[in-house]
Write a protein that binds this DNA or RNA. Structure first.
Length: 682
DNA sequence: AACGGCATCTTTTTT
DNA sequence: AGATGCCGTT
């Protein structure tokens, strides 16, 4: 008991002790959110005596789940079964494994990722843009619309087309026993909704439910949570409306704003003591976020006090910015700051380039977080496709990916013919090849190709048998039989790809070592749900998007690209309040110092554009008159300008005149004050 | 089947 | 600029 509470403050303690009924914990940045959830779980299990198996804690990322698991295991002793603590999608996967038969489907389904989804869509329809269809299908599923519903709802012809693609896509998934990410949640909800008895027993199993990062839940997830609460109301959600930055992918900030309406009788606890940042940092972050109109209202107070003022960095362009930041980082490192305590954050990934160059020139090692993920790499997807075909011979989709990798002379034309014939016989490509006489195949494709196809199928069979006997040895046999490392032979990045393949083989062996009894399809589904491998800790500074920085903290943070158009990003679908929250999230990553940087121009999308300083400087209470920008043109002291009447002059000073900027210009010895919009820069 | 040239698009990202 | 995708040529 003491162990649980001696590290908690008063509001955290209150939130932990409120075990019954709906609870909303509004946890500001750096306010000890994870500690609070873990303590609450420990309290339920160790003090109240709730069996661990009757609790359920859901997160969004594997990383969060992993961290919580580790921390809770350290805190909870004498528990026979660890509590179920996993991502929403993992929960869906587990649930479907047990219950998908109620939808007349077999539980050896395979989870496909976004890339697979797009390939399937592309095959069905290559006219409309695939990403659009993919996101629309996702939207339909999250709104629980069937293809029929989508079709009826569609007014524009294109949307009728999309609904048709959606229908065929669903048929394809069913025929091949595949589920996509959205299905993991949507089918789980559907089962609970269609089977009240199942909802009741499931809800009774999970008596106490906690949800992390509640501001990131979408409409469907809320419905699922409500189903899980069918027989009780013990739902505790933790989140921060000010850190909701995933609206663009369907997160519904109203869920946290109106929690008390969805779950009546809710208790609300606010965690407003910040253990992370020095007070000048919080002052700036608080000032910025206060400009948002829709918030629950919460103000972070620093428990650490003191500290340096927030620094503003003004540069003419991205190269100057990069030089300045590299210099500052160099000084920090010289003064003994650990590299991993420094981070450069940006709104848009492309902004990393100039900084990378600057750091390279200064000889400072950095680690780029984000970018192409390991499991999304082509070579890794090839290996996964092989394993998929081996576990499920009917997976035409994966088979087509690998049938000519490495090159076996089986081009699109040949494979299309075989596929057509297979469909005519209502069977899969694999089965068709396996069960057809060589003479039948020769009627479709070249003689040489029919032999190759037969050989391919024979090898898949052979490796699949080996896998049943020894999963561990299977992986070597796979490489030896198909020579997968030859796929990228002769390409420029061959050695990188081979390194990645070896890493994958290593991961496979680790998995089998850890759980020797698991089948290949368990391995596959685990993989699909896996995000980026843990970043190795090293002696280099971090660079990442603001989104990627959520939940992390660094002693010294640099935020670059604070310009109108970048932060806030302006475009269709952009939401100024969400942009402000991004600003807030990025600022509150800093513990000791925060540097906000802006450049007057950047090279972007193939051309150089002038940029206006972000409004967030003013909103955060950081005014700076040294560089004034208007009508997409930056002015500063010393610039040459032309005026329609007075001709050419040189800027001697810049000041503010209401909403406009006023320039003091020296026209051949005569200084005049002119509004900036009346001159052009030369 | 494979390659190369041309057009197009460009926020954030997890599962 | 740089990546991606499509189409026509070899």
């Amino acid at each position: 008991m003491e162990k649980i509470f001696n590290r908690l403050n008063e509001s955290q303690t209150n939130a932990v002790k409120q075990t019954e009924g709906p609870v909303l914990i509004l946890a500001g940045a750096g306010s000890g959110k994870t500690t609070t959830i873990i303590s609450r779980l420990a309290y339920l299990i160790e003090v109240i005596g709730i069996p661990a198996s009757n609790t359920l804690t859901l997160t969004f990322t594997n990383k969060a789940a992993k961290e919580m698991k580790e921390r809770s295991l350290a805190m909870i002793e004498n528990v026979a079964y660890p509590p179920l603590l996993c991502t929403f999608h993992k929960f869906g996967l587990l649930f479907l494994k047990f219950n998908i038969h109620l939808l007349n489907r077999k539980n050896n389904f395979v989870v496909i990722d976004t890339d697979d989804k797009k390939r399937i869509i592309k095959k069905i329809n290559s006219e409309l843009p695939t990403p659009l269809i993919a996101s629309e299908i996702s939207r339909y599923k999250n709104s629980l619309l069937t293809p029929d519903d989508a079709y009826k709802q569609a007014e524009l012809f294109n949307y009728k087309q999309i609904a048709e693609v959606y229908r065929e896509y669903e048929n394809y998934l069913n025929e091949n026993n595949l589920v996509d990410f959205d299905d993991l949640i949507a089918l789980t909800y559907k089962l609970l909704n269609d089977n009240p008895e199942l909802a009741k027993t499931t809800s009774q199993k999970y008596q106490y439910i906690m949800i992390d990062e509640y501001q990131d839940t979408n409409e469907l997830q809320l419905k699922l949570i409500q189903k899980l609460c069918t027989s009780h109301n013990n739902i505790c959600v933790v989140g921060d409306d000010d850190q909701s930055i995933y609206g663009w992918r369907g997160a519904h900030i109203r869920n946290i704003m109106e929690f008390d309406q969805d779950f009546l009788g809710a208790n609300v606890y606010k965690l407003e003591e910040n253990y992370r940042s020095r007070s000048p940092i919080l002052k700036v972050a608080n000032a910025l976020i206060e400009h948002n109109r829709s918030r629950l209202g919460k103000k972070l107070l620093s428990t650490r006090g003191g500290g340096d003022d927030v620094t503003t960095l003004n540069s003419n362009d991205e190269n100057e910015e990069a030089r300045k930041i590299a210099t500052k980082i160099g000084k920090l490192l010289e003064s003994g700051v650990r590299a991993k305590e420094i981070a450069v954050l940006y709104r848009v990934n492309v902004l990393s380039r100039s900084i990378e160059e600057g750091l390279n020139r200064a000889g400072i090692a950095y680690k780029l977080v984000g970018g192409l993920r390991f499991y999304d790499r082509a070579e890794i997807k090839d290996l996964i496709s092989y394993i998929r075909v081996i576990t499920n011979n009917h997976d035409d989709f994966s088979l087509k990916r690998i049938v000519n990798k490495p090159k076996r002379g089986l081009g699109k034309a040949s494979v299309d013919k075989i596929e057509l014939a297979a469909h005519a016989n209502e069977t899969s490509i694999y089965e068709y090849i396996k069960n057809s006489d060589i003479s039948t195949l020769e009627g479709l494709v070249k003689k040489k190709n029919s032999l190759t196809l037969k050989e391919f199928v024979k090898n898949i069979d052979m490796v699949a048998k080996a896998a049943l006997e020894s999963t561990y040895e299977f992986i070597d046999l796979l490489e030896d039989t198909f020579h997968l490392k030859d796929i990228y032979k002769g390409t420029q990045d061959e050695s990188d790809r081979i390194l990645n393949m070896d890493e994958f083989y290593g991961l496979f062996r680790d998995f089998i070592k850890k759980s020797p009894d698991s089948s290949l399809d368990e391995f596959l589904n685990e993989l699909t749900l896996q995000s980026e491998q843990d970043q190795v800790e090293g002696e280099s500074i971090y660079m990442m998007s603001i989104h990627a920085s959520k939940g992390l903290e660094f002693e010294h943070v640099f935020i670059i690209g604070l310009e109108e158009g970048f932060l806030p990003l302006i475009g269709d679908g952009s939401d100024l309040e969400e942009e402000r929250r991004l600003g807030y999230v990025s600022m509150t990553r800093a513990k000791e110092t925060l540097t906000l940087s802006h450049a007057a121009s950047r090279f972007y999308k193939g051309r150089r554009s002038d940029l206006q300083k972000s409004r967030f400087f003013n909103e955060a209470g950081l005014c700076d008159g040294s560089l004034i920008v208007e009508k997409n043109t930056a002015f500063k002291k010393g610039d040459l300008v032309r005026h329609k009447v007075f001709g050419t002059g040189r800027v001697a000073g810049v000041s503010r005149a209401g909403r406009e900027f006023k320039l003091n210009i020296n026209f051949a010895g005569t200084k005049r004050d002119i509004l900036a919009s009346f001159v052009e820069r030369l």
